[in-house]
Design a protein around this nucleic acid. Sequence first.
DNA 1: AATAGCCTATCTAGTGATAGATAGATATTT
DNA 2: AAATATCTATCTATCACTAGATAGGCTATT
Lengths: 193, 193
Amino acid sequence: MTSKATTHDQILDLAQQYIQQRGYNGFSFRDLANGIGVKSSSIHYYYASKTDLVVAVTSRYRKGFSAATDQLKADNLAAADMLKAYAQIFKSTLEDDKRVCLCAMLASDFDSVEAAVTDEVKAFFAEQYKWLANIIANGISHGTIRGDIVPEEFAILYFSALEGAMVLAKANDNPADIELVANQMIAMSQHAG
Amino acid sequence: MTSKATTHDQILDLAQQYIQQRGYNGFSFRDLANGIGVKSSSIHYYYASKTDLVVAVTSRYRKGFSAATDQLKADNLAAADMLKAYAQIFKSTLEDDKRVCLCAMLASDFDSVEAAVTDEVKAFFAEQYKWLANIIANGISHGTIRGDIVPEEFAILYFSALEGAMVLAKANDNPADIELVANQMIAMSQHAG
DNA sequence: AATAGCCTATCTAGTGATAGATAGATATTT
DNA sequence: AAATATCTATCTATCACTAGATAGGCTATT
């Protein structure tokens, strides 16, 4: 018996999809309602405002992403493999669902959203920077990543490149570019051969 | 006597600003009209549809950017300095005007815009990839950039990272991150010390 | 009976787009 | 030169539609 998703979950799921594909200003309560098969007032029953809805979606996304990266870290791979697996999350998000990172979309919409949303987005970025810097620092201490790399700086580079590659790869309809971008950075972070 | 900008030019200028700051779905003909001091019907006089307007803005942006990079190339700097100067365009766009690359914004809005717009955006990306690959190839042939780098691949990396860094730097209110990202890639493209 | 979940109906505001009018500049004909 | 015609750039007013939001009612579960 396939347990039917609740309306509440469907709202969050579809809102997330719309934000990832069309951005904050690219969908309406009616779009959500029509997609789910309810009325827009039912969305308001769960979320009084669009801001409330988007904050909930972003918070859930942020926590889900953290859980995924924590899981990845528990696998205890070498730093380079960890970074590769991390990039794979971005690639499959685009390849499988034609979606861009939720927070990259919302970052583009920063001038359109309220502080409650930007706070969640900034928290997401801070968490990802921290996770990446930790992985990189571990790689350096294990001698698999060049010692002249500054973990906090390379984290920003790696993350920026992946987020940018995601948007460009979608525009160019070429998800493989994400892997191409990640592999080049990883190769450059290794000791010269 | 300060020559007053025509209404037509004001429309293109303000539309460009809005797209760079709020995206395709983040502004209206009325926003433009109010900002300029005319009626929205006057915008329609110049551009029958929003698509037509955005195509015109994007085409102008693309040609202006090409002119700027051609000028940069004429300066005949070393590859690394050329790449640094290129990144500086992105940084000052964010720092001075709080704007993101027009085409990065439109790329995020790909699911919301018509093919006439996406064609212009894709043409912009293709031109930038080509310019960067050429600069990198020159650097390799002059021996200032590592020979194991593939120009077309590093171009995608460099451009992706800059576009991503621009969006993230805006969200984090930290334009210096653009330079940080560029400098790391340039350093890694050099021969090991 | 109370609550949860969803509905109908409606509101105010704003969307892109269009029709028709008009003042003033420019061009053409007499 | 004067009269006529056309063009440019803008206006007012309105279209059908969509936006987010809200009040109040119905129904099913607890």
